[in-house]
Amino acid sequence: MVGESGSEVVRVVIVDDHPLFRAGLRAALESAHDVVVVAEVETAAAVPETVAEYRPDLVVMDLSLPDGSGIEATRRIAADTPTVPVLVLTMSDDDGSLLAAMRAGAGGYLVKGAGRDEVLHAVRTVAAGGAVFGAQTVPRLTALLASGAPRTAERVFPELTERECEVLDLLARGLDNRNIARRLFLAEKTVRNHITHIFEKLHVGTRAEAVAHARDFGLGAD
């Protein structure tokens, strides 16, 4: 698609569940002559069909969606339509989210609050096949990659207690409650209580969701 100035237009799908933020982002993007928003999506479930229908040049993805993770939605795009790049634009400013987004195939990562020019630069760059990470993100990303630090539950889920992190890590490795209890020298009832607290803090409803969420962030891989 070619714009009025003769330059190629970047066709964008926005994935975010906040209507006011979507409206503001659309206005900011379309204030540029070479960007157009072709669709807006509120849920992770609607992403595959929307991307398949519109075949955009870029998806701008929030990580926190009402029915799932933007990480999984990004991974699905990378698997189903690998020619469609993803730029993450989220409130999540932590190492775990950054690493998980990279592993899922995101080509860029910005934190909400980035200025219009920064967002437009990222949209154009990632749509063209480049990689962009916000000014605050680059030093952390460089340090993480240089250190080769392992992804631990404590690092990616700071809201959990040390014991809850241990339980989640073992859940992600496929252990059942009985074996978790044996490994940590706890009663099975205590393990169940920890799992209940993990569900509450991670906003998941089942063991499978907790395991999937943990694996999204790189746990349970070894």
Rank of each mutant, 00 (worst) to 15 (best):
E164H: 04
A153Q: 05
E166G: 11
T152N: 02
R163F: 06
S147Q: 11
R151P: 07
A149R: 15
T161R: 01
L145F: 05
T161Y: 07
V167D: 05
D169K: 08
L160G: 03
P158I: 08
R173V: 11
R155I: 12
L170R: 13
R173L: 13
D169A: 14
L144S: 01
E164I: 05
E164R: 06
G174Y: 10
A153T: 01
R163Q: 13
D176K: 14
D169G: 10
D176F: 03
L160D: 02
D176C: 09
L145I: 00
P150D: 07
R155S: 13
C165A: 11
L170D: 03
V156S: 08
E154A: 15
G174Q: 03
E159C: 14
R151G: 05
A146S: 15
A153W: 00
E154G: 10
P150Q: 06
R163H: 11
A153S: 09
D169L: 10
L144F: 04
L171T: 05
L170M: 10
L160T: 00
A153V: 01
V156W: 02
R173I: 07
S147Y: 06
E166L: 14
R155G: 09
C165Q: 05
P150M: 04
T142Y: 14
T152V: 01
L160V: 08
L168W: 00
R151Q: 11
A153Y: 00
R155T: 13
A149E: 15
L144P: 09
L168E: 07
A143K: 11
L170A: 10
F157D: 02
L170T: 11
R163W: 11
L168S: 03
E162M: 12
V156N: 06
